[in-house]
Design a protein around this nucleic acid. Structure first.
Lengths: 247, 247
DNA sequence: CGTCCTATTGAAATTCTTCAACACTCGTGG
DNA sequence: CCACGAGTGTTGAAGAATTTCAATAGGACG
């Protein structure tokens, strides 16, 4: 899977707004030539959302796509009587927006403060038609989301509350620092969600999440200097706690 | 989303093995021209798997792709200590096999007797490169699987045992007969899974599944003439049971 | 007819939720 | 500077839902 754009881009050709953007390399924009990037940049708008702000409401027509520049976005489904389940978390430089689909199947909300770079549906749809590599990247992101959804299905269906919470911390740690698992020492990071969102993601109540975090702390697996900060004291033990008892 | 192939195909040009195949119209093969279909048909092999037979084991290298001709295939994940979660069910004419991915992330097993039409990875990968519509269809199937996975995340995380079982019956009924929901009368179908598979899909035990089916029967929502047959007596009530109490 | 596989049912045990009280932090305004 | 309130998180005790363990039943097949 190529992560290099198909054509060497001189920095001077790259639109100003795209320089220093993570999405240009690792995100979908990495598939675009300088010319295509310039075409897209003509229509982009940057926007910042506050915590809890809706980016799209369930059922909204999707008129624009976006790349996440920073922050964490949650995708949430609701039952008729108001129970909520977070079905996906997206980080920079993830692409937001459903290709082909006319409607969003869930609410899209800022979990933290979020910055995005958005552009009209139509602009990207046109570029997709002339650029197979772009189509490929969008498909690759969908496959990644599918893998994550299925990992969480296993957790939601078959793992205990303690395993789910450990699994979540492991997941976040890896997202924030992919090399963390290879290090021996302590790893520290901020949880980008409040307890209520963790509960909605893990299919638990906030009380249960809190109790399981306390248990992990008491078991010396993690430290919790404050509500949002986690220090993983032993990555292997965290992983064990996430996977459950060995076969 | 186009469901018509890009080029009119005279039946006489269609390879013998492809005639009367559901995948040729509704599946990924619908994107292929007669020439491409012929190219693919040169390498296809049909195969039948018995109930519970593995099509691919977790971690296997994927050397071949396949279309399901008939039957139901389950995608299952396992924890280290043997707990199982079914993370997807596939029906004819679904495509089996992960594009780009080198490894399967789960076990692929026959839930019923299954017939497939398989072909080498490489053959399809080559066709994908020269046919954007094929790429598009593969992406569309991935998106459909993602939607289903997320629907089940809501059920696994936030729905009660009774709601999950009703939700499952509703899902199967719709898959077998998409017009069923519009009919007023009774709808009858066979559950393609045994209780153990239903439990693994719903994140429950077989005992709980059995008890919830009994409750649905006692509530006059369904009849169970035998272990595999379900008669939905009132589709609306089944839907209500699946969605939970209205807001 | 006995055995295997599958499914159902009951009773006890466990896990998680619910309800309720309390603690901490942060910003605002007296 | 401190009091107040809102938002967030923790902890305890009681309750509910689901699992576990155990017994039983029915069908398919040799």
């Amino acid at each position: 899977m190529s992560t290099i754009s198909r054509q060497d881009i001189h920095n001077s050709d790259v639109p100003l707004v795209c320089r220093a953007c993570e999405a240009r390399h690792k995100g979908v924009c990495g598939a675009l030539s300088a010319v295509q990037l310039a075409e897209l940049a003509k229509h982009t708008v940057k926007h910042t959302y506050d915590v809890e702000a809706p980016l799209v409401a369930d059922g909204d027509k999707i008129e624009r796509y976006a790349n996440i520049l920073s922050g964490v976005v949650k995708l949430a489904k609701l039952t008729a009587d108001g129970r909520q389940q977070i079905v996906g978390l997206q980080f920079a430089p993830d692409f937001l927006g459903r290709p082909f689909g006319l409607q969003s199947e869930f609410d899209v909300q800022a979990a933290t403060e979020v910055r995005v770079c958005s552009f009209p549906r139509q602009t990207l749809d046109k570029l997709v038609q002339e650029n197979p590599e772009l189509q490929h990247r969008l498909h690759a992101q969908t496959l990644k989301e599918l893998d994550e959804a299925r990992d969480w299905m296993l957790a939601l269906g078959r793992k205990s509350a303690g395993e789910r919470v450990a699994n979540f911390l492991y997941f976040i740690a890896n997202h924030i620092d992919p090399e963390a698992r290879e290090r021996d020492g302590e790893v520290q990071f901020e949880i980008p969600l409040k307890r209520a969102d963790m509960a909605d993601f893990l299919g638990l109540t906030i009380e249960t999440v809190s109790r399981q975090l306390t248990k992990l702390r008491q078991a010396q697996v993690i430290d919790l200097p404050n509500n949002r900060t986690v220090v993983v004291r032993n990555f292997g033990r965290l992983r064990n706690a996430a996977e459950g008892p060995a076969g």
